[in-house]
């Protein structure tokens, strides 16, 4: 029989202190920064042209020349992963950023003013959120057509309702606070109050959610690419490389395993960052 651990009275500390004390956050930042660095440096560090075919070296297992092997066209898998990272991460970052900005602006305005528009926004958000994010993205890319811009649009659209809901809720809580009354008494415009006073106060929650959404966005992109909805060939994103390898899974498992591990590493890194930031900004979260 074990007794429940006593809830230790943790010493009060800053959010920064709590964040840095958890090794997870540091590890997450390390993984994500390394991935971004590898993507940025791809033109210099990739050993081969990612699209250069070598018919004599088709499906060759990992060796010293091709550390991660070659694919069905004799293309170097390592180089393809490094170049693919550029698109996978780019789509994830831009789509998340667009989703955060659009969702936050709508959410803050809707929560600040309330009224009929607010009720319509809430109803629309509820309906959009009732679709699984992946199915929604899939439908959008399928009807828009698969291209870099459309992928970004589709993934951003799936992120918008989540950020509307969150920004709206936080804004409504802020609206009741004294400092907003003070701003009104000083005669500040609504715009100024919303974006210079309310927004900075809800920013930490938005950052936490954005870091978790970044993982979702990159996962959605790789998933859509795996289903076959991605940028046109020969360029491939991580999910697309896994897809190419999946057809040869039994003969050449390295083709799917290595890009899969790349996706997994970035997912773990971003989730570590998200969880670490959430624990740091929310002292109530049980840790």
């Amino acid at each position: 029989m074990s007794a429940p651990a006593p809830t230790a009275a943790a010493p009060r500390s800053s959010a920064f202190g709590r964040a840095t004390r958890s090794g997870g956050l540091a590890l997450g930042v390390l993984i994500v920064v390394a991935s971004i660095a590898a993507a940025v440096a791809a033109p210099w560090i990739a050993p081969f042209d990612p699209n250069a075919q070598d018919v004599l070296l088709v499906l060759s297992p990992p060796d010293t020349v091709h550390p991660l092997g070659t694919d069905a066209f004799g293309r170097d898998v390592l180089s393809r992963i490094l170049w693919g990272a550029r698109i996978s991460l780019y789509v994830g970052f831009v789509a998340t950023l667009a989703g955060v900005v659009i969702g936050t602006v709508i959410g803050v305005v809707s929560g600040y003013y309330g009224g009929l528009v607010d009720r319509l926004v809430v109803a629309a958000t509820d309906v959009l959120l009732s679709f699984p994010q992946l199915i929604m993205g899939l439908l959008l890319v399928a009807v828009l057509g698969a291209s870099l811009t459309n992928l970004i649009i589709a993934i951003a659209v799936t992120a918008v309702p989540a950020f509307i809901r969150m920004a709206r809720g936080s804004t409504m809580a802020m609206r009741e606070r004294d400092f907003v009354d003070a701003c009104r008494a000083l005669g500040y415009s609504d715009m100024r109050i919303m974006f210079l006073h309310v927004l900075p106060n809800i920013l930490d929650e938005l950052v936490v959610m954005a870091s978790l959404w970044l993982a979702t966005a990159i996962r959605t992109e790789s998933t859509l690419a795996f289903i076959g909805l991605s940028v046109p060939p020969p360029t491939s994103t991580w999910g697309g490389i896994v897809r190419e390898g999946f057809d040869n899974l039994l003969d050449a498992p390295w083709m799917s395993i290595f890009p899969s591990l790349a996706i997994l590493a970035v997912m773990i890194g971003l989730n570590l960052i998200g969880d670490g930031l959430r624990d740091a900004t929310d002292p109530r979260s049980p840790q």
Binding site: R219, F226, S260, L264, I268
Partner: peptide, 21 residues
């Protein structure tokens, strides 16, 4: 952490390779 990080197709491929192949 691993569970929320795995895209479903990545975990599927790894499970397939390890337990079936």
């Amino acid at each position: 952490l691993a569970g929320v990080s795995f895209p479903a197709f990545v975990s599927g491929i790894l499970l397939l390779l390890v337990f079936a192949v």
